[in-house]
Amino acid sequence: MTLVLNEEMAPGVGLLTLNRPDVRNALSFELRQQLIDALADFARNETIRCVVLTGGPDVFAAGADLKQLSRMGPIDMLEASPERYWQAISAFPKPLIAAVNGLALGGGFELVMHADIIVAGQSATFGLPEVKLGLLPGAGGTQRLPRAIGKSPAMRFLLTGDPIPAPLAAELGLLSDVVPDDQVLEAAREIASKIARRPPLAVRMIKQCVLNGADLPLDAGLEIERKSLQLLLASEDKAEGIAAFIEKRQAVFKGR
């Protein structure tokens, strides 16, 4: 069964759709493997410059596959090495936009937090309810959520397992956009299409600067930024961008 659908939703924009609606897109190991395989395909495809990830109009992902998890002991988990899936998503070099309708809980929420931009419907709900099961978020939730919204609010939701409605998530700075539920995918497509028209090398460098510098001292982050800018000065896209600006025409960027 195809657990992750992939297609080109607009010129330069790839779309990935989680496809286990019968179990609210529970993140089985098989689904995660198909997801990173699809991301790898888009990473290699030079015509794709931005990717949108969704779970469909009703639910993003309600969490890990608990039936699968219930059969696993410590050694099984060690051998399965699920961190490799998350590391592959973190390493995806192109902009990744999460388009969220419905529930994004547990591993589903952690998957959302791996995205660079998050667009959510007004009735979307986020949460890390693992504590209610005697567990804790194991795919970065205890680390990414405090970095995204600060220690105190993150602890409040990590320790209680309470849900975070989309309007509150936006107030906390977790989301980039909140739109009507039936406009989520279109809003994500519009942002992705705009990014796809930008020079690919500059886009990639900006993502690298932000992610690589996030946990470094400011001086080290600024050094990464300076070196990245110096590299871009040698690109054909830089010359094209400046020429198009001076000539008052639309730039044509080729990623070189």
Rank of each mutant, 00 (worst) to 15 (best):
D37L: 01
A38R: 05
A38S: 14
L39Y: 03
L39M: 12
A40R: 12
A40E: 15
D41F: 09
D41I: 06
F42Y: 11
F42I: 06
A43D: 15
N45C: 14
N45A: 08
N45K: 11
N45E: 14
T47H: 12
T47G: 06
T47N: 12
T47R: 12
R49C: 03
R49Q: 04
V52F: 10
L53E: 02
L53K: 01
T54K: 04
T54R: 04
V59H: 01
F60G: 08
F60P: 09
F60T: 01
A61N: 07
A61M: 02
A61R: 00
A62S: 09
A62K: 02
A62E: 07
G63V: 06
A64C: 09
D65Y: 01
L66T: 13
L66D: 15
K67S: 15
K67E: 15
K67M: 15
Q68F: 07
Q68D: 11
L69Q: 11
L69R: 08
L69H: 08
S70I: 11
G73K: 02
G73D: 14
P74E: 14
I75K: 13
D76R: 00
D76M: 00
M77K: 13
M77Y: 11
M77Q: 14
M77A: 13
L78I: 07
L78S: 11
L78P: 13
E79W: 04
E79M: 11
S81W: 06
S81E: 12
P82Q: 06
P82F: 03
P82I: 04
P82S: 05
E83V: 00
Y85P: 01
Y85M: 02
W86D: 09
W86C: 03
Q87V: 01
Q87C: 02
Q87I: 01
A88I: 00
